[in-house]
Design a protein around this nucleic acid. Structure first.
Lengths: 106, 106
DNA sequence: GGCTTATATCAAGATATATTGATGTGTTTA
DNA sequence: TAAACACATCAATATATCTTGATATAAGCC
């Protein structure tokens, strides 16, 4: 039940919905990608990413100085249905523009 | 999006999860049924029921001095999947005991 | 080693949400 | 008509969450 509430709580915020949708559309991004795309300060983005990770939606892979966030896979059907629902919302999702020196990985 | 957040916000509370599951199991209940079953004061129950209604999970039918709450029907597939998920949580859901003078309706 | 970059976390203040007790509205019963 | 009942809403307080700016850590560059 605590896990359920943590999952629900993690998507109970407009900024996190936008970030989650952004990552869902762009496969894999580092923190500064989100920072640049959304124009929000780093601590705010970092915190939201952590909440989405703890909510079971995201995974992180560290590489050098970067932390690459992506949709956790495999994703259970409940969280998948949430992602689908979010995809259909008219969210203001910014474009990806690489501002940091990280490179798109394979 | 506001509707989505209202829906998510409505289930982002342990008390409301328990109430929602309770109503899902008992078809139709009045406010004092919930009050009696959960041992919580009336204003608290009434407020949570309103939030669940505004979240799109419940409907109300007024009859005399009672307000009968039940799962809204038909329910869209997203909210259905949420109800299913909630059903499988180990929620402490109390038994129904009629304390008020309302009668079980057909 | 010292500087820059990328990220995480903390403390403080702002904002939102939950709980309680009191009050208001409408309905039934005596 | 007055009292009791069922329910909704409000004001005050308590609690949780979000945002910001500051600081911490760790990796790469000069």
């Amino acid at each position: 039940m605590d896990i359920f509430l943590k999952t629900i709580g993690s998507i109970n915020d407009e900024t996190r919905l936008r970030i989650l949708n952004f990552i869902n559309l762009h496969e894999e991004v580092c923190v500064c990608d989100v920072e640049n795309a959304f124009g929000m300060i780093q601590s705010r983005i970092s915190r939201h990413l952590k909440i989405l990770k703890d909510g079971g939606f995201l995974k992180v892979e560290r590489e050098g100085r970067w932390a690459f966030y992506s949709i956790r896979s495999p994703l259970d059907s409940f969280r998948q249905s949430i992602l689908e629902e979010i995809k259909h919302l008219k969210l203001n999702t910014p474009a990806l523009k690489k501002g940091c020196s990280s490179v798109v990985r394979e």
